[in-house]
Simulated scan of single mutants.
Amino acid sequence: MEINLKKYIAAIGICFMALGAACIMKTDPEEVGEELPELIIGSDNYEPYNYLDDDGKPVGIDVELAEAVCEQLGYTPVFQYIVWDKKDEYLDNGKVDCLWGSFTMNGREDEYQWAGPYLYSRQVIAVRTDSKIRNISDLAGKRVAVQATTKPEEVLLERSDPRVPEVDMVYSLSGMDEIYASLRKGYVDAITGHESALERFVGNAPDMYAILDESLYISELGVAFKNDTHQDLAKKMTQILKEMQDDGTLRDMVEKYGLDAEKALGVTNAE
């Protein structure tokens, strides 16, 4: 009996050890499939940064970048498409955690809690090839379409840049498709936007449209959180973005989508 009792006690001990090991193993979220916290990312449809492919899946530079950064931070990115000129409302009411979609941070440093800058982008002007507009000064008295609440709208309306003349009318539209249509139909004389987006528009009909050599503005792109929130997260995100630039990951991403890596990474932005 004594031998059997010892065996019984030993067996119980082994069971408890196995149970304890199993509990320890279950603390690894990857082993048990625990869900990571979500980071709700707001953006409009702005190719090649953030847009939907033919299957309705979010793709683009900012999408791939957000997925890579969130993986390191321990978040699951959720992409929420928004009306861009209502972006602050989405942040204020908590419907999105951040804005991540080719968003210009320079000139807005005090308006949001920023991560970045992580890329650079020229804001350029596109016109019809039969237009007499050849440089920014030729916009005097002309009609120009911009996306509402963007940097080109600000530059044209405030005219803080001495190169910018007084235009006849600035049409502030909701999305890029509307902006492209306004030039196609002759409602405006020129349109403005990020160079990478307008290059795609012009590339579809190079005999009809052209981009001016002179840029309107050089944007530093960042990730915007509501001001005075997510300070630690923004700091960590900035560090990861810097590491991705240093190790060449960011260069590979922008080249994949046809951007000039030297310009996008701020190596060459001279006029």
Results as ranks from 00 to 15, higher is better:
164 V>W: 06
188 V>F: 05
180 Y>D: 01
182 S>M: 06
210 A>E: 13
238 T>P: 12
172 S>F: 00
261 A>P: 02
157 L>R: 13
150 T>C: 02
264 A>V: 01
129 T>K: 12
180 Y>I: 10
236 K>T: 05
262 E>M: 07
241 L>N: 11
175 G>R: 00
253 M>K: 14
164 V>T: 00
218 I>F: 10
163 R>L: 10
159 R>I: 07
150 T>H: 01
145 A>K: 00
159 R>V: 04
167 V>W: 00
137 S>Q: 15
237 M>I: 09
218 I>P: 11
206 P>V: 00
243 E>M: 13
149 T>W: 01
190 A>P: 09
166 E>A: 14
194 H>V: 04
172 S>V: 00
148 A>D: 01
143 R>D: 12
188 V>P: 09
225 F>E: 02
231 Q>C: 08
154 E>S: 00
166 E>C: 03
171 Y>K: 12
211 I>K: 05
237 M>P: 09
269 N>G: 12
223 V>A: 08
162 P>A: 05
158 E>H: 08
209 Y>C: 04
160 S>K: 14
201 F>N: 07
164 V>P: 02
195 E>S: 15
245 Q>C: 11
141 G>H: 07
224 A>F: 09
169 M>E: 13
199 E>G: 15
154 E>V: 03
226 K>V: 01
164 V>A: 04
203 G>M: 06
242 K>M: 12
270 A>C: 01
227 N>S: 08
157 L>S: 07
203 G>T: 00
146 V>P: 01
255 E>H: 01
204 N>W: 14
140 A>E: 15
163 R>D: 09
133 I>W: 13
251 R>M: 08
231 Q>H: 14
223 V>S: 04
178 E>N: 08
156 L>H: 07
252 D>Y: 03
203 G>R: 03
219 S>I: 07
258 G>K: 03
146 V>S: 01
225 F>K: 04
162 P>M: 03
264 A>N: 04
197 A>C: 12
129 T>N: 15
192 T>D: 05
135 N>T: 14
245 Q>R: 15
180 Y>T: 08
253 M>G: 06
185 K>Q: 14
181 A>P: 05
202 V>E: 03
196 S>M: 07
206 P>L: 01
141 G>S: 06
187 Y>K: 14
182 S>F: 05
229 T>C: 08
235 K>I: 02
229 T>K: 09
222 G>A: 08
156 L>I: 05
250 L>V: 03
129 T>E: 10
129 T>Y: 00
235 K>P: 06
229 T>N: 05
177 D>A: 09
268 T>H: 11
193 G>P: 04
225 F>M: 06
174 S>C: 11
135 N>D: 15
198 L>H: 06
257 Y>I: 03
202 V>F: 13
228 D>F: 15
255 E>N: 05
210 A>C: 05
255 E>D: 04
240 I>M: 10
267 V>Y: 08
165 P>F: 02
229 T>W: 03
212 L>C: 14
219 S>C: 11
240 I>Q: 11
213 D>L: 12
268 T>L: 08
207 D>G: 10
220 E>Y: 07
235 K>T: 14
142 K>Q: 09
200 R>S: 08
241 L>G: 10
234 A>N: 06
168 D>K: 09
222 G>Y: 00
206 P>D: 00
